[in-house]
Nucleic acid binder design. Sequence first.
DNA 1: TGGTAATGTCAACAAGGCTGACGTATTCTG
DNA 2: CAGAATACGTCAGCCTTGTTGACATTACCA
Lengths: 168, 168
Amino acid sequence: MDDRAGGESLLFLTDDQLRKGIEAMFFAYRGFTADPDRILAEKGYGRAHHRALHFINRSPGTTVNNLLNTLGVTKQSLNRVLRSLIEDGLVVSAIGTRDKRERHLTLTEEGRALEQALSNAQRARMRAAYKAAGPEAVLGFRAVLEAMMDADMRRQYRKLTETLGPGV
Amino acid sequence: MDDRAGGESLLFLTDDQLRKGIEAMFFAYRGFTADPDRILAEKGYGRAHHRALHFINRSPGTTVNNLLNTLGVTKQSLNRVLRSLIEDGLVVSAIGTRDKRERHLTLTEEGRALEQALSNAQRARMRAAYKAAGPEAVLGFRAVLEAMMDADMRRQYRKLTETLGPGV
DNA sequence: TGGTAATGTCAACAAGGCTGACGTATTCTG
DNA sequence: CAGAATACGTCAGCCTTGTTGACATTACCA
């Protein structure tokens, strides 16, 4: 099928191969967001709410500024989303004890419930994809994605995942 | 968290592993779109224009309906983008010869130039990621992404890529 | 000829980005 | 201690890109 026989090992860098990767990213990202999007639509929320819920759940007590850096949006944009989540009782914003200028964000029970519903749906798809592709593929998958990030995003990604267990 | 120490070949299906994949997708997609976004912003276009240019370039002479299915948006939404591209002389819309209701879309020289600039930028990043991760990883990368797509997206993806050369 | 399909377009709306400006605590620093 | 800097919130306005709904035109087809 391919000829790794000769000076072959660079075949994966052809434009065709790269374009396959580009189109795969495009179509896969749609699948990646499809299931949570359905749940969010029912509740009257959008992807931005999902992202906020995800990272607050991931780092309970995180500050607004931290979240801003992780999400890469303006404070005005985040604030709009955060305000509705707080009003709806999914997120609690607590004045910092050490530094009273800071607001520490945590999920309420209800917020955790929605976050769970969303991430269960997303994990289910991811699990199916992992299962279909196999453990070897998963390592490759994450290696390419990690290499595709901007340097500061990669730093954040590693920071978030470094505390996790074995298995890369 | 869990100790599948025994049947550990399923370690890659733990929630932690799945979450890593989810966060990797999130951060990587940002990198994936960052470079074209910069070019587009200069020209006063957005991602929607990029997507249209990409798939018209990919399938010259494609119809509006085809493009609609590929992009998964409403015709009103696509039309707005298409209209500006046509007005700016990047895309030509030709009435079908066989079926005069259809419009066949092709890029002009100028359209091709912009598409090239965009896809060069995107390919450069993809190339760097591929190179950093290696050929094995690339196969895994695409395997997982493909498994993550909705069935009809996967069909379209395969249709687009089936005509390409060797190397999976 | 009537039904259906492909396309374009108008209007209205919403989410979620953005910039700019301003206000208010609070903390840090010279 | 005064002033600068930081963290946050908010108002106003703008843009892109998605949505629905309605309607017109043209053309194919049974």
